[in-house]
Write a protein that binds this DNA or RNA. Structure first.
Length: 373
RNA sequence: UGGGGUGUAGCCAAGCGGUAAGGCACGGGACUUUGACUCCCGCACUCGUAGGUUCAAAUCCUGCCACCCCAG
């Protein structure tokens, strides 16, 4: 494994994308400590305030300034709100309108952090950017590869699978080879003001929201029926796009049938019906075979069109690696998993791995329900 | 109008004289750079209503009300 120091020259300027959190702060500190010419840049990509009228990016910017003062590096702020809206959020909304469940953060990384931001850094004269992602880079025969973070509990390669080799080659990940615990420890030892700051969650740059309320401000609703698999009307929904497959809460169905919980297993856009099944073990919640499109290989594909390839995959962030057999033809990837997968959802990302290396991934487009292969 | 049955939280539902199980839903929290899932906590000073018996009643008795079923 290369340490991040092997990628760069000491006199080279490195621009660090700083969020105001501990990870990117420690990333900047580690580069600075190693003797590099480090510049911190804070991105503001979302203008809207949250439902409480709070703009969390204000506090984050304040934190970035405090951290940069503490580790003694220059800092700036840039605004990619327009790019974020055009390249990420618009697609995000369109996916929801089409009945799918998109993952905006994988797009954000491809379009904003490792494109708009990268280009901006290059204009400043930097040859590399650095982020606080828990991932590693390994160069093999002159090609950069995306490797999982050392900390198995914090690995974020899932969110970066859409990057191409050229983008990864210009990136440095200073905290990918240490654990979250070590990051906190370092932050604490050097007295960073954000050493105990809670990790941020929610859509990147937008933050934690009541997701249904958030979507309702951007997507018109069309109320309809919630139907059981047998076609019985068991409730009412506020708009198909406000629900996702596998979802349990928010359905308001209680006291029916055998008393167990109900889960979303499908959406019928034509009839504007949300299809639900009772019981967490419903066959319709599971599948072995799924298709995915918009295939991305970080480097070259591991097999030719039509051939089978055995590797592992994650159907969602933080899921343990799942054994799969994949193949692709005419731009459509087919993945057959050894174990049944729960609530595989169109619009979400299927990310592929060979051991610790992220190969790439694709957007789930169709799922063959049921536990029989 | 006779005869029978049932009325316990938003829903389903235990309890059958000793001081209100459980599930679902819902709310809050934890987890989490997507959406979800999961986990934890909370959730009827009160049992249709008005009286009565009793040391003690959701549980027994009586009236009333509501709904359901069978007669007509």
């Amino acid at each position: 494994m290369n340490s991040f120091e092997s990628f760069i020259n000491k006199d080279e300027m490195i621009v660090v994308g700083m969020s105001g959190g501990v990870d990117s702060s420690v990333a900047a500190y580690r580069l600075k400590k190693a003797g590099y010419n480090v510049v911190g840049i804070f991105m503001k990509n979302w203008e809207e305030k949250d439902e409480n009228g709070v703009c969390t990016s204000e506090q984050d910017w304040t934190d970035v300034q405090a951290v940069c003062e503490a580790i003694d590096i220059p800092y700036y702020a840039v605004n990619f709100a327009q790019e974020y809206w055009d390249k990420v959020f618009t697609l995000f909304l369109n996916e929801y309108k089409a009945g799918r469940t998109p993952n905006p953060d994988v797009l954000c990384n491809r379009e904003i952090k490792f494109k708009a931001f990268l280009e901006y850094a290059e204009q400043l004269g930097a040859k590399h950017i650095a982020t606080g992602h828990f991932v590693q880079r390994r160069d093999i025969a002159g090609k950069a590869h995306l490797i999982k973070g050392i900390d198995p509990n914090k690995d974020q390669s899932y969110f970066l699978y859409m990057l191409k080799e050229a983008q990864i080659a210009k990136a440095i990940f200073p905290v990918g080879n240490i654990t979250k615990q070590e990051v906190r420890k370092i932050a604490n030892e050097i007295g960073l003001p954000v050493s105990t700051k809670k990790d941020s969650t929610g859509v990147c740059f937008i933050g934690e929201r009541n997701f249904k309320n958030f979507l309702q401000t951007y997507l018109p609703s069309q109320k309809g029926n919630i139907c059981s698999v047998d076609g019985e009307i068991v409730g009412h929904h506020d708009g198909l796009m406000y629900y996702t497959l596998g979802q349990r809460r928010g359905l308001g169905i209680g006291g029916r049938g055998d008393g167990r919980s109900w889960f979303v297993v499908d959406k019928n856009l034509k009839n504007n019906e949300l299809i639900v099944a009772q019981g967490e073990d419903s066959d319709l919640l599971y599948s072995h075979v799924s298709n995915a499109v918009d295939i991305t290989w970080i480097n070259e594909a591991p097999m030719k069109e039509g051939e089978n390839y055995h590797c592992t995959a994650k159907y969602r962030y933080r899921q343990a690696d799942q054994e799969v057999c994949i193949s692709y033809s005419n731009g459509v990837l087919t993945a057959i998993s050894k174990e049944p997968q729960r609530a595989v959802t169109p619009g979400q990302s299927l990310v592929l791995y060979k051991d610790d290396m992220c190969l790439g991934g694709a957007i789930i487009s169709a799922v063959q329900k049921g536990t029989h292969k």
